[in-house]
Design a protein around this nucleic acid. Sequence first.
DNA 1: ATCCTCCCCTAC
DNA 2: TAAGGTAGGGGAGGAT
Length: 900
Amino acid sequence: MESFLVDNLEKFDTSETLKDWDGDFRAYMDAKEDKLRVQFHKEFENTETCKVFSGVTIWVDGETSPSREELRQLMGLGGGNFETYFSRHLVTHIVAENLSASKIKELKKYRLHSICVVRPQWVVDSFVNKKIQPVARYLTPGILDDHQKQLQTTNEQLNNSLVETDIVHGTKPDRTLYYRRTASHSTNENPNFVRDFFAQSRLHFIGSFRARYEKILARMVAEEGTLCKLPYDRSKTSERVIFHVDMDCFFAAVSLAKTPSLRNQPIAVCHARQNSEIVDSSCEISSANYEARAFGIHAGMFVGEARKLAPSLITVPYDFEAYEKTSELIYRKFLEYAERVEAVSVDEAYLEMTGIVLPVRMKDKEIRNIEDLAMELRLEIERISGCTASIGIGSNKTLARLATKKAKPNGQFAIWSHQAMEKLSLLPVEELPGVGWMTRRRLHSMNIFICQQLRELSLERLEKEFGKQTALSIFETCRGKDERPLELYRPPKSIGAEVNWGVRFENNLQRSREMQKIHIGYRFVIMLCCFYDGISVNTMPVDVVCERLKAADAKATKLTYKVLRKQRNAPPPRKYLGCGLVDEFSKSTSFPISDSALEIGPRCLTLHESLNIPLDELRGVGIHCFGLEFSSHHHKRHNSGITLSKYFQLDRNPQQLRIDGCLKMSRMPSKQNIMGKTMYHEKSNDIRVSPNNKRSNHSLDELITKNGWSREVFVELPNEIQQELLKDAQSCNQRVFWGNSSAMSSFGVSKRARSKCNKTNPSFLQPTLTQLDDIYQAKDQGLSQLVVAEEFQTRSIRECLEILQDVEHAKKPKIHIPLEYSNMVNSVRQEQETWYQSLHNLMNDPFVELSKHLRIWITQIQSFQPDLRRKHQEALFASVLHEVENGRLYQVQGIKQHIL
DNA sequence: ATCCTCCCCTAC
DNA sequence: TAAGGTAGGGGAGGAT
Ligand SMILES: Nc1ccn([C@H]2C[C@H](O)[C@@H](COP(=O)(O)OP(=O)(O)OP(=O)(O)O)O2)c(=O)n1
Ligand SMILES: [Mg+2]
Ligand SMILES: [Mg+2]
C-alpha cells in the first residue's frame, strides 16, 4: 500500500504531461512475446534450409499431429515465424486439427478474413514441396461457412504476393521481428511507403494547404480578373469589421453533400471501413458531424472509442479531391465578398469587411447591414458547395474567431470590442486561441478557469509564469484586444516534411555497421525522395529530394533533422504502427545555399549518424529547411489582367502600415524538460506512465474507478490536487463529497438540497400518472427520434431519463433541460456551508454532463481553503448557470437524437 | 546584447 | 489494421 502511494506521488510530481494509459500488462506480455520471437530467430539462424515460409506466421491451436514443437521446427527451418500467443496482428495462419464452436466464435471477433485456419498437413506439405500449398485443400473442418469461402481467395492472393515479393527482391529475406503483413504499411518493406503515407494522410493534406494556396489563388485571379464584387470605401475610419468564416464539420459535410442519404445520421470521416470487424480500431476520426458529436465523438478520437459511444456510427472514407474542390469554391466566394482575405486553412478564412458600403443590392436582395451580409454569404456558400458555414463577426481577428465558436453550427454571431469584456468574462480559458492543453493545465493549477479570473493577473505575474511574449499575448487575448492585421500572403519561413507513423526498421544485429549505414541510408533517401506532396514515386533520389523547395522557388541554407526514438521500456503504442512513447532529438546544420538533393541529402545522413539512434528504435524522421531565399516571386509569373502582385499590394494600405510592427499573436511556451528529453505524448486523455513501474499505474486506474472519479477530470487536475486525492483515498478517509452511489440522493444533490427543491420548485415533484402515461406513449411513438425539451421541463430529470433509458439502441446522446437545471443549481447555491459538496454531487450525477472546465473547477474547489472557496463561489455559480441557460448540451442516457 | 540551437506549444 | 503533418511563435540557456 505504502509503496503504491509513493509511486504515484512520484509520478505526478513530475508535473509532466501525459499519458499512455496503455496497459502495463500488455506491455509485459508483449515484451515476453518479443523475447520468444528473438529466441526463435536465434535458434534457427544457422539451420534455416529454405525460405518457403517467409512471410508466414503460424499459431497452433490445441493438439496437433505433427506436434506443436514439430511444427515450430518446420517453421524455423522454412524461414517462417511461430507465435506462442495468438495475435491478430501477427498471425497469418492458424493451424488446428479442428475448431470447437466456441473457439470459432472467439476467433470471429478478430479479423478472420485475412487469417486462414488450416490443418497441420498444410505446413508439412508446403515444406516438403518447398512451395506454399494452396490452402483450399487444407482448411480445418468446421469453419468453411460462406464467409470463409469468400476469404479463401484473398488468402491465396496474399500468399502469392508474398512469394512474388521475395522473387522480385531476389534476396534472401530477413526473418524479421515484425510480421510480414506490415509490409505494405511500414517503412520496413514497402519502398513506396512514404508516397502511400502522404497520399493517405489527412494531416499532410491540411498541413500542406497553405503551401498550395498561393497557386490556387493565382489560378483564380488569372481566370477571373477582378474578384471582389462589393463596394468598399477604404478611406472610412470606423471600427474594423472582420468575418471569420469556417465550414461546419468540413470533411464530413463534403461527404454528406455527395451522399445526402446519410444526413441526420451520426457519421465520422476516417480510414476505418464501415463493416470492418476490427473491434477496437485505433484509426483516427478526422471530422464528425454534429449528430455524431452529440454522442461525444470528436476529431482525433479513435474509431474504437467512438463506436463505444455510438454503435450506430457510420464511417465515411476520405475524399481529398472533393475537399480541395470545395475549398476552392468557397475561397472564390470569399474573394467575391472581400478584397482582403487571409487564408487560415482549407475550410477557414478571415475576411476584412472594414469599409464596406452598405446598403447594397445583391441578386435582388437588399443587404442592409453586416448581419444581412453574413447571412447572404452563408447562403451562397451553402448553395454552391452544399455545405454550411458559420461566420463569426468581430472588431478583430480574435473576437471574430471566438464568435465563430458561438455561431456554430450553421449560424452567425457578432462580438464587438465594446462587448468584449462582458462577453468573454465567463469564457473558459482554454477557448482562447493560443491556449491549448498545456497552458490550460498550468492556468488551472493557478486556480484560473475563466477569462474573468485571468484578467485579474497582472502582466508581470503572467510574464513570470509564461515569458514575455506569451504573457502579453494571453494578457491581450483574454481582454479581446488584438490589433493584428490580416495577412493576405506570407512567404514561408521553413519548408519541411516528416513521418512519424509506420516507421519500423529491422533489428538486424548480424548486419555489420557498414551494412547498417547503407541500409539506413537507403531507407532514409527513399524518405527524402518521396516527400513531395505524396506525388513522386521511385524517381532517382537526387532528382526529387528538393522538389518541394523548388516548387516554392526557394533555396535553403539551414536544415534541422529530427528523429523520434522509442523510449526505453515504452509499452506498445496505443495506435497501430504509431510512434508510441518517444523522445525527440534534433540537430541542425548550415550549408551553402541549395535546393539540390546532392547537397542536402548527405547532410541529413551525417546528422542522422551523429544522433546515434539504434535502427530498431527509430520511430519518426523529419527534415525542415530554413534560411529560405526565393529566386522569384510567384505572383509575377502569372500573366493576367490582374496580377497577384497587385492583389498583394492591397496588403499595403495606410492603415496597414500603421498596424505593422505592433503586437504579434503568440503561442504558449513551456519549460518542461525532463532529463534533457521530451516526452512525445500519445494523443489521448491518458496519464503518462512511469515506464519502470508496472503495477502502480494499474492500481491507480483501479483507484480512480473505485472512487468514482472521472478519469478525464482527474488527469487535468494539478498535481497537488491529484496527490491530495490519492492521499485521501489512501487514508480511507473519504469525504462526503466523493460519495459513492448510495450516498447520492436521487437528484444527485444532498438530501438537504433535495427537500428544499421539493418545496420551492414544482418541477421536482413526481410526474402524475397521466404524465407518465404521456411519456410512455411518446416513447412508443418513436420518442427516440425526437423529443421536445419543454416536454421534460415539468418533470424531474431522473424520472424522464429513467423512462427513456431503455429506448432501443440508444447510447449516450445529449439533452438540454434548462429550466430544471437552473432550478437545481439555484437551490444548491442557497446552501450556506455545503454548496460546494452539493455542486460536486450534482456534477457527478450520471445524467449530467457539465463542460470539462467546470468539472475540473468544481473538483478543485473541494480542497480549497474556505476563504478561497468563497472567493470563487460567485464566479463558479455564474459560470454553471450561464452554461445551463445558454444551451450547452447535457448528456443523458436513453435518447437517440440530438435535442435542443 | 544578440544570435544560435534545441526543444516546446499551438492550430488546422 | 492504418496512414500521429506542417508551420509558426517563442523560451531557456549557452556561444559569440
Ligand atoms: N484534429 C483534426 C482537426 C481537423 N481536421 C480536418 C478535418 C476537418 O473537417 C478540417 C477542418 O477543421 P475544423 O477545426 O474546422 O473542424 P470541422 O470543420 O470538422 O468542424 P467545425 O464545425 O468545428 O469547424 O480539418 C483533422 O483532420 N483533424
Ligand atoms: Mg470547420
Ligand atoms: Mg477550420
